[in-house]
Design a protein around this nucleic acid. Structure first.
Length: 942
RNA sequence: GGGGGCUUAGCUCAGCGGGAGAGCAUCCGCUUUGCAAGCGGAGGGUCAAGAGUUCGAAUCUCUUAGCCUCCA
């Protein structure tokens, strides 16, 4: 618990660096116009400087011509020269479930900060350095509107796991920033903040580096402590002071002074570029006087974060991130595509599009698929915000995807994986842009309908505006803009009320749905030892009963054994079933689940008693063999999909059961028949080649280094099991190479799978497809069933299965022709009975000429047709046609005008004819059973 | 996980208890030596699937599926 919460606080601390300018609740000022003109000029100068790159520019530090990529590289090189191990940053998909995305440089090192050995794929080292892409998408409304909110930013970090401490990290930060060999910042422009009583840091800054005392400011625990306010408020655990480094960008960025900054903590001139955190205490609560107890930590860590974009803006002397070497060209491209220059109010849109295009590309590259839920939804929202701004710039065709090559070009130095993913990123963004533009179009149509209905009212209700947003995805600001064009205002207060209400119901709704049923059992099981699982090799094993609990359904028991051959549900594979035997009794195992490392067997006791301490024999049932076939088949399917569709395929979930397998994976388009056939035959070939399947346990780092496929968002322990299928098919050259982290049960050789058949490919979410398939007996049984079904169908139609298609098409044609003919015949029958209208009985009733006619064997539609013809032929005002199935009354327009009402008439007649009915004044019908009775009531009905 | 909406002709959609429609597209005539031509006509539908309510359901209710959308 302690580790998670303090880690979380750490995370927030790092985020604060990125948003320091707004952390005190003061929203940042909107973009000042004068600064934009200035920034354009500076932008050109910066780009020019980058391109011509003189060895040393007189007006600036020697580092001024560095690109962002240069700075990133130099940072890593610098710390490598200080004996740090360069590690790759973690994907933006968070390494732990406490956050949705990776939000801090240290996040992947939480285990090391908690004492785990500092051993990585790249080697063992207590000093590491990384470039970490961090994603923060929960507060995107400010991105583009302010100087330096970004939804994706890069944290350069150097970390010590119980190695060097405060003095070294201060010295290195100073050297990297001020040495002309590295960043070359002028020392007289450097300022730092320290924790109020951190005299040690003060000494290092002043004595080691000659920083004047008036360039150092002391802040309290709210500002210069990690986690913020930890001494008084907790949490307990590792904590410590921190020191932030600022750079004075000079009076052209504002007239404020450092003293003013210390007071208001708001400044455009003084830019925080680096935060050094010194966790040196173990908080152990408060003493009797309410003072915090801060014991020294046995080993001290260092955790730092240098904001790459911030340092780059200092180095390049640009007023904000958007004029740096990464964003400037992207913004230029947006101006080019839209034909709208980067100036004035609309420049917000350029910034939003550029920033979001970069962050969304990076996130998609790390395997996040745009979707309607969770992480995928957050990314989609960000992309839609960009799309909306593109629309505001007059881009009403997909265009953001065209920025991707630029993003890749600018970022690939630090993140080479982008290159291989470029096409996939573009496809995903383009598809989403198309969808959004369709949504906008529909919304515009709907909105203009609403505006028309408004008439002379000048306010569109908040309800309507909210429905547009909530149901049709049409954003409020566009609603306002279009309404304004019609001189209509939008009731924003009403909109916000409706939004709040909707959020409330969504929250309330999602609170349920957790299975609380099982929690009681989980507690009882918590203190039991881990179950020894032997089921990979043995299907029959002895164990002792450690606990017997009430089962999930009445009469069943939940049994915990010391040792078991039963596999517990996990990794998509269902739990094992089978038998338990003991002296004096036996039971059926219906399901096996696990809580942590404790296996729970759901048992139906057939005879005898089960009690704690008893020795029992577990025998796994025959379903296991079928499960193993399906599980290995799933791995082959995964490999085949990647072979046929490309490496864009990533597993997104799976189910392995004795009777079938289901595999979800990321892919944007439906699979063609050819692709399905290719995948199926590839798997079949690998099956018949009878490759060996092997598995072994190894440290997770080793497995990842070997290239084993791990699942996104899945948590693995230190030791993992790797299942491998490798081999080459002699006659086709189609090699299989499958290596997955997997705890499931598998067959020994691929040949054991037997048969393999793909059943279906369907869409489960945007960008995710699902394949169902069968292996072994389930597959052959399915094929047999299909064959016999088509044989039976063919027999019914007196044809062969091969010509079923033609035969059915032929019959359909015949059926349609027959239906038409029947309709014709019925019409003729009605006409014959009408005898050209002559057989109708016409009389005057209630001032109308009323023609009535009794037909037999005619119903519904034909009665109406007959009534039409009778109305024409007889020249009557009202016609009544009845059969023993129905009744139709029609009246001419004139008759209706004079007060005739077919609907009322039919009600009375139907009642007399044993039925009910109704209709319009000019036409009405009823279902009746007695035609004579209905017609007999004609006189009295008027 | 929860809320809202949609599904009708090849396409875009209207209709929302009482005869399945429009525009575009297709085909056939006529007119016209021309740019999205004009006029007349025809073909094309399991109104997503299933159950229910009703004398009667595209229309109301429920279930299911697919899609869109907002939220967690």
């Amino acid at each position: 618990m302690r580790s998670a919460s303090s880690a979380n606080a750490q995370t927030e601390q790092c985020l604060d660096l990125a948003t320091a300018w707004s952390k005190h609740g003061q929203p940042e000022a909107e973009y000042p116009q004068s600064r934009i003109a200035q920034s354009q000029a500076t932008l050109r100068a910066a780009i020019l400087a980058v391109m011509t790159a003189p060895e040393s520019s007189p007006a600036s530090p020697s580092a001024r011509h560095l690109t962002t990529a240069d700075i990133r590289r130099k940072f890593l090189e610098f710390f490598q020269s200080k004996e740090h191990l360069i590690l790759p940053g973690h994907p933006v998909v968070a390494p732990d479930p406490t956050t949705m995305f990776t939000v801090a440089g240290m996040q992947q090192f939480k285990p090391q900060f908690m004492g785990a050995p500092a051993v990585f794929n790249e080697g063992a080292s207590k000093r590491v350095t990384t470039a970490q892409k961090c994603v923060r998408m929960d507060d995107i409304e400010n991105v583009g509107r302010t100087r330096r909110h970004l939804s994706l930013f890069e944290m350069m970090g150097n970390f010590s796991f119980g190695d060097y401490f405060k003095r070294d990290t201060i010295a290195w930060a100073w050297e990297f920033l001020t040495s002309p060999e590295w960043m070359g910042f002028e020392p007289e422009r450097m300022y730092v903040t320290i924790y109020v009583d951190d005299d040690e840091a003060f000494r290092y800054w002043t004595e080691d580096h000659g920083l004047p005392a008036d360039h150092i400011h002391r802040f309290g625990a709210d500002e210069n402590f990690w986690p913020a306010d930890a001494p008084l408020k907790g949490p307990n655990g590792p904590c410590g002071p921190c020191s932030e480094i600022y750079y004075d960008r000079g009076p052209k960025y504002g007239d404020d002074t450092w003293a003013e900054y210390a007071d208001t903590r708001e400044s455009a001139r003084f830019l925080e570029v680096w935060n050094l955190v010194f966790p040196e205490f173990d908080r152990q609560g408060l003493d009797e006087n309410g003072e915090p107890i801060l014991a020294p930590l046995p080993f001290k860590n260092i955790d730092t974060g240098m904001g790459l974009e911030r340092v780059a803006s200092v180095v390049q002397d640009v007023p904000d991130f958007y004029t740096n070497d990464i964003f400037a060209p992207i913004i230029g491209k947006i101006a080019e595509l839209s034909g709208r220059p980067y100036e004035g109010e609309q420049s917000v849109s350029h910034r939003v599009i550029a920033e979001h295009a970069r962050s969304v590309s990076m996130v998609i590259a790390d395997g996040v698929a745009l979707s309607n839920t969770g992480r995928g939804y957050v990314v989609r929202k960000v992309l839609r915000r960009a799309s909306r701004h593109a629309y505001l710039l007059g881009l009403n065709e997909p265009s953001i995807y065209q920025l991707v090559p630029l993003v890749v070009e600018k970022m690939k130095d630090g993140y080479p994986e982008l290159v291989a993913e470029q096409e996939r990123i573009q496809a995903a963004i383009k598809a989403e842009e198309e969808r959004f533009l369709r949504t906008l179009e529909g919304g515009i149509q709907r909105l203009s309908g609403l505006l028309e209905d408004l008439g002379r009212e000048k306010v569109l209700s908040g309800e309507d505006a909210f429905t547009l947003y909530d149901t049709y995805g049409f954003p409020l600001d566009l609603t306002q803009e279009i309404a304004a064009e019609h001189g209509v205002e939008v009731d924003v207060t009403g909109y916000e009320l409706a939004l709040e209400r909707a959020q409330e119901t969504a929250r309330a709704g999602s609170r349920f749905g957790k299975s609380e049923l099982f929690d009681a059992g989980a507690e009882a099981v918590q203190n039991l030892p881990q179950t020894e699982f032997v089921g990979y090799d043995q299907l029959d094993a002895e164990g002792d009963v450690l606990a017997v609990l009430e089962g999930e359904t009445a009469g069943h028991k939940t049994v915990v054994l010391s040792r078991t051959p039963f596999y517990a549900e996990g990794g998509g594979e269902v739990g094992d079933t089978g038998r338990l035997e003991w002296s004096g009794g036996e039971g059926r195992v219906l399901d096996t689940r696990r809580v942590g490392g404790v296996f729970l067997h759901e048992v139906e006791v057939l005879s005898g008693e089960l009690s704690q301490g008893q020795s029992v024999r577990g025998v796994v049932g025959p379903e296991r063999a079928a499960i193993q076939r399906h599980h290995t088949a799933t791995h082959l399917l995964h490999a085949a999909l990647r072979a046929v569709l490309g490496s864009g395929v990533r597993q997104a979930g799976s189910l392995v059961a004795p009777g079938r397998l289901r595999f979800d994976f990321t892919h944007t388009a439906a699979l063609s028949q050819e692709e399905l056939a290719a995948v199926e035959s590839l798997v079949s070939r690998w099956v018949s080649a009878n490759f060996p399947v092997s598995w072994q346990e190894m440290p997770i780092d080793e497995a990842k280094a070997a290239g084993a496929t791990a699942l996104f968002g899945e948590k693995y322990g230190d030791t993992v099991r790797v299942v491998r299928v490798e081999g080459d098919v002699d006659y086709s050259g189609q090699a299989v190479s499958s290596m997955e982290l997997c705890g499931g049960a598998h067959v020994r050789r691929t040949g054991d799978i037997g048969a393999f058949v793909l059943l279906s490919d369907e869409n489960v979410a945007a960008g995710v497809r699902r394949i169902e398939a069968l292996a072994g007996e389930a597959a052959t049984a399915w094929v047999r069933e299909r064959l016999s079904a088509s044989a039976k169908a063919a027999a019914l139609l007196n044809t062969s299965p091969e010509s079923l298609e033609d035969r059915i098409a032929g019959l359909q044609g015949q059926l349609k022709a027959s239906e038409k003919e029947v309709a014709n015949v019925k019409r003729q029958l009605a006409e014959a009975q009408m005898g050209g209208g002559g057989s109708a009985d016409t009389r005057e009733l209630g001032g109308f000429q009323v023609a009535s006619l009794k037909l037999s064997g005619i119903e519904g539609g034909e009665l109406r047709g007959a009534a039409d013809r009778l109305l024409e032929q007889s020249g009557a005002d009202i016609v009544v046609i009845a059969s023993d199935k129905g009744l139709v009354v029609k009246a001419t327009k004139d008759a209706v005008a004079k007060g005739a009402h077919a609907g009322q008439l039919v009600g009375k007649l139907a009642a007399a004819g044993g039925g009910k009915g109704g209709g319009r004044p000019d036409m009405a019908q009823a279902g009746i059973t007695d035609a004579a009775g209905a017609l007999g009531a004609l006189e009295t009905a008027f």
